[in-house]
């Protein structure tokens, strides 16, 4: 069933969806309201739209599994002694030591393959230490995330 008033001039029929969504301009909104006051058919159409929006508004807002937070880069900047004992520095020192020992003790006939092997070994050791450090860092972050989530949860419960 449609409104007989707008059957004769459909171009002037108000945009009811825009009306309930508060997207009509002031003049158009006033005209729409004036028509609604006199037309039961359009009134029902608008009522159904509003009911749909009301039903949609019952959708629960979900809590986040955990909060999002960023940490300043400065926290992760190592101190000078950490730099000295960092895996990268240690691996570099190992490579340098390997080359030096070969230079001092070696027969002078060290092949390129031996140098490459020493470098590969040092790099793999460095990478292994990196992996261990990153894993430890992730574990620490995970623990901190859980602590923050618990604090947040408790704070919500205590409200």
């Amino acid at each position: 069933m449609s409104c007989s008033f707008f059957d004769t001039k459909p171009e002037s029929k108000p945009d009811w969806k825009a009306y309930v969504l508060r997207e009509l301009g002031q003049d158009a909104h006033r005209q729409a309201e004036a028509h609604l006051a006199t037309c039961s058919i359009c009134h029902e159409e608008v009522a159904t739209l509003r009911l749909t929006l009301d039903t949609l508004s019952t959708l629960r807002e979900e809590e986040m599994p955990r909060r999002i937070a960023f940490v300043s880069d400065k926290v992760f900047e190592p101190r000078w002694w950490q730099r000295v004992f960092s895996p990268t520095f240690a691996a570099g020192a190992l490579v340098a030591a390997a080359i030096l020992i070969h230079g001092l003790v070696g027969t002078g006939r060290t092949s390129q393959d031996q140098v490459d092997a020493a470098v590969t070994k040092a790099v793999s050791q460095m990478e292994a230490r990196h992996v261990q450090e990153i894993q430890a860092m992730y574990e620490q972050l995970d623990v901190r995330n859980k602590q923050v989530a618990n604090m947040y949860h408790n704070a919500v419960l205590s409200r």
Binding site: E62, P65, I68
Partner: peptide, 28 residues
């Protein structure tokens, strides 16, 4: 100022999370 950004995040994260949750249909 990372702390300022964290405060901004705390104001918007739930809205963004719920919007994304309805779009991707998976909490994780």
């Amino acid at each position: 100022d990372v702390e300022a950004y964290n405060l901004l995040v705390s104001r918007w994260e739930k809205r963004v999370f719920n919007y994304l949750l309805r779009l991707v249909s998976n909490r994780e």
